[in-house]
């Protein structure tokens, strides 16, 4: 898995309900998705163009989890976001 993760598409709007739940709205497909607390940390990292290593550190700083486990969870979520076309398939916009 490469260090660089693509930033979210411009047409995906993220709204944070509170610290525990957020919503992504795809303005093109007119569909929305909910994110749990951990997924929100990852999405915020993607929006801020943080590297994979930095996002893993964000997760391990906040949660009782090993870097290896956090990395696996990050990669799995990124794959899901790509499958739902919420992230570009490769680096860049």
């Amino acid at each position: 898995m490469s260090e660089s993760i693509p930033s979210p598409h411009e047409h995906i709007v993220f709204t944070e309900f509170d610290d525990t739940e957020g919503v992504l709205v795809d303005l093109n497909s007119k569909r929305y998705y909910t994110l749990n607390e951990t997924a929100m940390i990852i999405w915020r990292g993607l929006e801020r163009k943080r590297t994979r290593t930095e996002i893993i550190r964000d997760i391990t700083d906040a949660y009782d989890v090993t870097p290896e486990h956090a990395a696996q969870s990050l990669d799995k979520l990124v794959a899901t976001l790509r499958a739902r076309k919420l992230l570009p398939a490769d680096g860049g916009q």
Binding site: R31, A39, A62, D64
Partner: peptide, 21 residues
Amino acid sequence: ADKKPFVEPVVSVPVDVLEAT
């Protein structure tokens, strides 16, 4: 040792905005 227990990150299945409204 104060960190929160880890919960796997989850993105829900898509919901059609028009259906919801």
